[in-house]
Computed example of a mutant assay.
Amino acid sequence: MNRAWGHPAYPSSGPGKDVSSGSTNTDIVGDLDSRIELVEDYNSVSPLLKQLPNDERTILQMRFFDGLSQSQIASRIGVSQMQASRLLTRILEKLCEKLVE
C-alpha cells in the first residue's frame, strides 16, 4: 500500500501492465480508430451536400474527390481560375454556415 496516496502501489511494471504476459491493456483492447472522425464528418456533411444545387456539388466533387486544381475546374466549367476559387469559397462558406445551424 502506498501510504502517501492511500491505495495499493502498482507493480514495478506500472499501471495496466500484465506482469505475466508482458502485454498492456491497450495491447489487448486496442486503440480508438482515428478514422471514426471521418465517419462523423461524413454523417454531418452528407445531408448538406444533397441540398446543394447540382452544379455546386459537381464543383466540390471535382475539387475534393477528383483532385482537380482550381485551374482545371475553371477550364471545365468555362470560367477563370479566380472565379473558380471564389465559387469554391462561396460553396464552402455556405456549407459551414449550415453546419453550425
Rank of each mutant, 00 (worst) to 15 (best):
S71N: 14
S23N: 13
D31V: 11
S69H: 07
G16T: 09
S75P: 00
K94N: 07
S75V: 15
R90L: 02
R86M: 04
L68E: 07
V45E: 05
S13K: 13
Q70V: 03
C96E: 15
R35W: 05
E37S: 11
G67V: 13
F64N: 01
E56L: 08
V29S: 01
L87R: 15
L95D: 00
R90D: 03
M1P: 04
L92I: 13
D55S: 12
Y10M: 08
S13L: 13
G6K: 08
R35Q: 10
R3N: 11
S69F: 06
K98P: 00
E97S: 04
L52W: 09
K98V: 02
D41M: 09
I28Q: 08
I59L: 03
S21N: 04
D33C: 04
L48M: 03
S23I: 07
I28T: 11
Q70I: 05
D27A: 08
T58S: 13
L87Q: 12
R86F: 04
S71A: 15
R63E: 02
E56K: 13
D33I: 04
E56R: 09
H7L: 10
S46V: 05
W5P: 00
V79E: 03
G67N: 10
E37I: 12
M1A: 10
S12K: 14
S23T: 13
S75M: 15
F65C: 07
D66L: 12
G67W: 15
S20I: 14
L99C: 03
G14N: 09
V19P: 02
R76Y: 06
Q81N: 04
R35I: 01
G16Y: 06
V79P: 02
A9I: 03
L32A: 12
A74M: 08
Y42D: 00
I28C: 01
G78H: 08
T89D: 11
E56N: 06
L88Q: 02
F64R: 06
V29K: 07
S46W: 07
K50C: 03
S75Q: 15
K94Y: 05
G6C: 03
D66S: 13
P47D: 07
